[in-house]
Design a protein around this nucleic acid. Structure first.
Lengths: 307, 307
DNA sequence: TAAAAATACTCCATAGGTATTTTAT
DNA sequence: ATAAAATACCTATGGAGTATTTTTA
């Protein structure tokens, strides 16, 4: 395999963690090695790459610029090595992903579209199931990489934060029960109809906990219907005045079309994170490339203001 | 400046020259250094990059693959460094080219279109004039890089072969005087009308020499008209049954539209080469990037067949 | 005072040079 | 016999580690 310039990979790690010590751990080198490599790059670029506000590190504008190019380089090295692997048959040129339903329906497709133009020779298969299943598939090597909605305590798995999700209160756009743009109060939830996923689903559990924080029990909601998939919930919402809690990623299209709306709910927010999962230590090059590719699309740039 | 991986640049040089010794000279390192770097890359890629047929070196398929990616890397490093230069004002972000008329009309525009999408922040100015003028502009630093149609013996200039040109016998598509697809014999040239550039132009000189080889004197041609530019010659050809000698690059559009045709002329070929010129030793990064960019577009891949 | 980055210093591996041998025409 | 690539061996530099100091919250 042909590796990217070491300094560049050090920089990428440092820029990602915004913490030299963490970056050192990730790369299994010493912290001074990070300092020195970055310093060297700062000499070569003739500019500071990080703004050192005491403890807090941020990327300068030049740092951002470099990160951008560094990721491009990374991508090319990835593809090159992938091709070399294909040449002597060490990889089937196939990537098998496992993901929860929300993710595989609403997140993965757009990533795949882009990924495919960059890696046209790679075939991708996706399985979907809940977190437990995904981890099982990983262990049995039926998939190469998983994306799940929460951490489990499985010590043999390594998790890497991917992207933030948010469950929001949703109803159809033309719902006479609410005033557009006005937040509702927790108690008002008891007065309206709800449609939710079946009892015991992971999502429901998250909702239950978040409601508890604002003093509402899940059982206090007037649940009109229980449905088995997000798609069916959305369809149901479109034709009734019911409400539900859905992932923002699941309703982008309907928000754009003004079919559904997000209802602000005072003091209520459910953040959760999607994580990449793979067996500890072992991650193939292709899954790793995919992960990086996906991260790049979803990591917003963080810049420090120049002095 | 942030430099590309040394091994990669060694490989690019070696692939370009197909000769380790020459590559070593270009990079100012020893020949064994080339051997070792290439060997190292061959271990990392797990394949041979060059086919050693005794003396003759050729790229293997893997070599081609690597070259492709290597050039992409090169391009990214170029752009990165260009941006760093712009950041602290060492470059105006402007490239000034000088070229002969044919080149600046027919070759440069398409390259520029591509170049501009890759380097959107770079402004480009083009001057056109003959080889002597171009070299003068270079010496007076009025331009950064020249492209000319032939070598001169100016020792203070460095030339680099860019792309092959060919002067061909041309006439309009619907010319009753010739049979489509049939080659003409030298003597037949004396029977038809010609339109040429003015006496003493560089192009005419080349034509004169080539005609001599097939036993025809330039004065023996029945020159109906003398025009000052390729464009006017083309327009003239379109409305008469006259012939002319033009660069293949100048007539691609007309060939596609079936307005002009190339007439095969037995044993006759005028090859000439376009060269990049710049003052010995000194070449800025931006001109260098442009040169490489242009070369990449016009250098056909040379591959060895795998055993 | 605790946590993270920078410095100082040491040591070893790597990479390139010189000299030479091998190979092929 | 010549020209080019490979090999052998040597040396020096660079890069990473450990230990320590500096900085700031």
């Amino acid at each position: 395999m042909i590796a990217i310039d070491f300094k560049i990979s050090v920089f990428i790690a440092a820029a990602r963690h915004l913490n030299f010590t963490k970056a050192a751990q990730e790369l299994n080198i010493s912290q001074p090695a990070i300092s020195k490599n970055i310093h060297e790059l700062e000499i070569q670029t003739r500019r500071n790459l990080f703004e050192r506000n005491g403890n807090r590190l941020m990327l300068t504008e030049t740092g951002q610029l470099l990160l951008n190019y560094a990721q491009q380089l990374q991508g090319i090295y990835d593809q090159l090595n992938e091709n070399l692997d294909i040449l002597d048959g060490r990889t089937a040129g196939e990537l098998r992903l496992g993901a929860s339903t929300t993710i595989s329906h609403y997140i993965i497709p757009e990533i795949l579209a882009d990924f495919h133009t960059q890696y046209p020779s790679i075939k991708i298969k996706t399985l979907h199931g809940n977190s437990r299943q995904v981890e099982e598939w990983l262990q049995q090597k039926e998939i190469d990489l998983g994306i799940v909605e929460g951490l489990s305590d499985n010590a043999s798995m390594k998790y890497e934060e991917f992207l933030k999700d948010e469950l929001v209160l949703v109803t159809r756009q033309r719902n006479p029960l609410i005033t557009v743009g006005k937040a509702v109060k927790p108690e008002q939830l008891k007065e309206v109809g709800f449609v939710l996923r079946e009892q015991g689903s992971g999502t429901n559990e998250v909702i239950r906990k978040a409601l508890m924080k604002i003093g509402i029990g899940l059982h206090e909601l007037n649940v009109k219907v229980v449905l088995a998939s997000t798609e069916s919930i959305k369809n149901f919402l479109l034709t009734t005045n019911c409400f539900s809690f859905l992932s923002v990623h699941a309703i982008t299209k309907e928000l754009k079309n003004d079919e559904l709306q997000i209802v602000e709910l005072n003091d209520f927010d459910i953040e959760r994170y999607f994580f990449f999962v793979h067996p500890q230590g072992v991650i193939g090059r292709l899954p790793d490339s995919f992960r990086r590719f996906a991260m790049k699309r979803h990591t917003p740039g963080r810049t420090a203001n120049l002095p």
